[in-house]
Amino acid sequence: TKVFYNGTYVEFNNPEKAKKYAEKVAKKVGGTFTEKNGQFHVE
């Protein structure tokens, strides 16, 4: 499961961990995250 952010991504074996990371990054940058095709995108 990949989490895309700012033109790069971090890959996780565990979708649950990926979601938590996406939430954390989104919170940090004051943005939101969306799930597309089983991957997370932070905006």
Rank of each mutant, 00 (worst) to 15 (best):
N13D: 15
N37K: 07
F40Q: 01
K17L: 15
E35M: 06
K36E: 09
A22D: 02
N6L: 10
T34P: 02
Y9E: 07
K17H: 13
K36F: 10
V10P: 00
E16W: 05
V3E: 02
V25Q: 08
T32Q: 09
K2Y: 08
H41V: 13
F40Y: 13
H41D: 05
E43V: 14
K24M: 15
A18N: 02
N13V: 11
F40W: 13
H41L: 11
F33E: 02
K27W: 06
Y5H: 09
K24N: 12
Y21S: 03
G7I: 00
F33G: 02
A18Q: 00
V25K: 07
E23H: 07
N14A: 07
V3I: 04
E23F: 04
K17M: 14
A26K: 00
V25T: 07
K19T: 03
V25R: 03
G30P: 00
Y21D: 04
V3P: 01
A26V: 05
K20S: 11
K28I: 14
N37D: 14
E16F: 06
G38C: 10
E35R: 02
G31K: 04
E23D: 08
E11P: 04
K2C: 15
E16K: 10
T34R: 10
A18R: 00
Y9S: 08
V42Q: 01
N6H: 12
N6Q: 11
K27P: 01
G38Y: 03
G30H: 09
K24W: 14
F40C: 02
Q39V: 12
G7V: 00
F33K: 03
T32I: 12
E11Y: 09
K2S: 04
K2D: 02
K17I: 13
F12T: 01
T1V: 13
A18H: 01
V3W: 00
E23W: 04
N37V: 03
E43S: 13
V25F: 11
K19F: 09
V42S: 00
K27L: 12
V25H: 06
K27R: 12
F4D: 03
F12E: 01
E16G: 09
N14C: 13
G30V: 02
Y9F: 12
T32G: 07
V25C: 15
E11T: 11
V10Y: 10
T34E: 09
G30W: 02
N37A: 07
K17W: 12
K2G: 08
K28H: 14
V3N: 02
K36W: 09
Q39W: 08
E16T: 11
N6Y: 09
N6T: 03
K20L: 12
F33M: 13
N37S: 07
T8V: 11
T8C: 15
V10W: 13
V29A: 07
K19D: 03
K2E: 02
N6P: 01
E35L: 05
G38L: 04
T34Q: 09
E16Y: 06
K28W: 11
E11N: 08
T1P: 07
T8F: 14
E16L: 09
A22C: 01
E16N: 09
V42Y: 03
H41R: 06
K19S: 05
K17F: 12
E35Y: 09
F40H: 01
Y21M: 06
E23P: 00
F4E: 04
V3R: 00
Y5T: 03
F40D: 01
K28C: 15
G38E: 04
F4C: 12
T8K: 12
N13S: 14
T1G: 03
V10N: 04
P15E: 09
T34M: 10
F40L: 08
V42H: 02
E43I: 15
E23M: 09
Y5L: 08
E16Q: 11
P15W: 15
N6M: 11
E11I: 12
P15S: 11
N37Q: 08
K27N: 10
A26P: 01
V10R: 10
E23N: 06
E43G: 09
Y21Q: 04
G31H: 06
N14T: 13
K20Y: 09
K24S: 13
V25I: 14
K20D: 14
E35H: 05
K36T: 09
K24F: 13
K27H: 10
N13C: 15
K20V: 10
P15Y: 15
F33Q: 04
T34A: 08
F33W: 14
H41M: 10
E35T: 05
V29L: 12
A26D: 00
T34F: 15
A22T: 02
F12D: 01
N14F: 05
Q39Y: 09
E43L: 13
F40P: 01
T8P: 00
A18L: 01
P15T: 10
Y21T: 03
E43W: 13
V29I: 14
E16M: 10
K20M: 11
F12V: 01
Y5W: 12
F40V: 04
V42M: 03
V3F: 00
K28V: 11
H41Y: 15
F12C: 13
P15Q: 11
E23Y: 05
G38Q: 05
G38N: 07
E43N: 12
K17D: 15
E11C: 15
K17Q: 15
Y9P: 03
P15N: 09
T8M: 12
N14K: 07
K20Q: 14
K28P: 00
Y21L: 05
G38I: 00
E35V: 09
H41T: 09
Y21N: 04
K36D: 08
G38R: 03
N13P: 14
K36V: 14
E35D: 06
G30I: 03
H41W: 15
A22L: 03
V25A: 06
V10G: 02
V3S: 01
K2V: 07
V10H: 08
F12L: 04
T1W: 14
V3M: 02
V10E: 06
K2I: 07
K28Y: 10
N13W: 10
Y5V: 09
A22I: 02
A22G: 03
K17V: 13
K36Y: 11
V10D: 04
F4M: 05
E11K: 09
T34G: 06
Y21R: 02
Y5E: 04
K24P: 02
F33P: 05
V25N: 02
G7Q: 05
Y5M: 07
T34N: 08
T32E: 07
G30D: 06
V3K: 01
N6C: 15
G38V: 01
E43K: 10
K19E: 08
E23R: 06
G7C: 14
T1Q: 05
T34V: 14
E35N: 04
K20H: 11
V42E: 00
P15M: 12
V10L: 10
H41P: 01
K19H: 07
K28D: 12
N6E: 11
K19A: 08
N6R: 10
N37L: 09
Y5K: 00
F40S: 00
F4V: 06
G31V: 05
Q39F: 08
N6K: 11
K17C: 15
T8R: 11
Y21W: 12
T32D: 06
N13Q: 13
Y9A: 08
K24G: 11
E16A: 11
Y21P: 03
G38H: 04
Y9M: 10
G30F: 05
Q39S: 13
F40N: 02
G7T: 05
T1R: 05
A22E: 03
N37E: 11
F33C: 13
A22Q: 01
N13M: 12
E11V: 12
F12K: 00
T1H: 13
V42C: 04
K24V: 12
N13R: 11
G38W: 01
N37W: 06
E43D: 10
Y5F: 14
K36H: 11
K36P: 01
V29M: 11
A22V: 03
A22P: 03
N14I: 06
A18F: 00
Y21K: 03
V29Q: 07
T1A: 09
K2Q: 05
F33D: 01
E11R: 07
V10M: 10
G7W: 05
F12P: 01
A18I: 00
T32S: 11
K19G: 05
T8Y: 14
Q39M: 10
T32R: 11
Y9H: 07
V10A: 07
Y5C: 15
Q39T: 08
V3Y: 00
N13G: 11
Y9T: 08
F33T: 08
F12W: 02
Y5P: 02
G30K: 09
F12R: 00
T34I: 14
T34L: 11
K28T: 12
E23G: 05
N6I: 03
F4N: 04
A26M: 03
V29S: 08
G38P: 00
K27Y: 05
K24Q: 14
K28Q: 13
V10K: 12
N37G: 10
K24A: 15
G7H: 07
K17N: 13
V42A: 01
F40I: 09
F33R: 03
K27S: 10
Y5N: 03
K19M: 08
G31A: 08
K2N: 04
V29H: 09
P15R: 15
K36A: 09
K36R: 12
K19V: 05
E43Y: 14
K20P: 00
V25E: 06
H41N: 08
V42F: 04
V29E: 06
E23C: 14
V42L: 04
E35G: 00
A18C: 08
